[in-house]
Amino acid sequence: MTLSSKNPPASSALAGSAQTRRTSPFLRQVARIVDWPMAALQRLIGERRMPYVFLLPNLFFFGLFVFVPIAINFWYSVTGGPALFPSERPYVGSGQYSYLFECGSYADPSSCREDHFWRGVYNTVTFSFFQVVAMVGLSLLTAVVLNMKIKGRGFFRAVYFFPVLLSPVVVALIWKWILQRDGILNAWITAMGGDRVLFLTEPTWAMFWAIFVSVWSHMGFYTLILLAGLQAIPSDIYEAAEMDATPRWRVFWRLTLPLLWPNLVVVIVLALIRAVQTFDEVFVLTGGGPGTSTLMVVQYIYETAFSNQVQNFGLAAAASVVLGIVLFALTLAQLAYTQRKSS
């Protein structure tokens, strides 16, 4: 055995643990078998390189299914034509990107050559902003209420989490059924003496319901994160505040919120990334309409690549590279923030 003293051999580690609990002879045998080739490998490549040996299998599959597709996607974005195989596609350089970004004014999508892409961008920004604000606000409120000692707390926690378990397509179909001309909501409105509202054919209503349904279906997940954060706050802090007769709003503002802030940041970033990627729910609920008022970037990418007779994989790939860069920036921001906090 030549392993360094810092890293005791697997067999000795197992032997050590055997002092506290019994290890099966079979496992010890397996450990012995694995031990000698690992020790030999460590002698060969050195101790510092050993972690990479353990990371390599996972990295291989991660690379195969994440980095390779990203690289292929990038190649598609600099090629044109309808051919499917990369080798058959003519190189067009930055042509697809130029086409996407050719605009009279970026503030006016209709002045852009590929106006649907820009309408998708603006809709995605609007959707993400309102959805994240509503999502964080309502999740926080729900988590605070569910953290209180109320009757049926367990039941309500389950109820709020239940929509998370449903498929987004099912969620959208249920809500479509509620919101359509002869849906439950209109039946209720007309029963109350009101006029039918075509919720999904008026642009403002359609965006409102797209946001509402998205918040309804995902809120439980974020509530759970915030609830865990709330439960991790030591109760003696609240006891001290109570002894000082601090008003409840002040306790929330000065104690709860700052202590919950790391969880809130996670929730904000996760919700934002998810909002930018939104596709299935909105696609099933509104189909991107009326007009293009709820057309999101991901739907634009899907339709450009698959719905048209000429399947424009190059343009769709370029749009997805742009979307990927935005998501990468958001992830970097989250990483930077969490690293700064932890240091």
Partner: peptide, 15 residues
């Protein structure tokens, strides 16, 4: 005509 067919969805979707 009602907007529920032509005006309700985006792009090339059939209704």
């Amino acid at each position: 005509m009602s907007k529920e067919l032509w005006g309700s969805v985006a792009g090339t979707a059939y209704r």
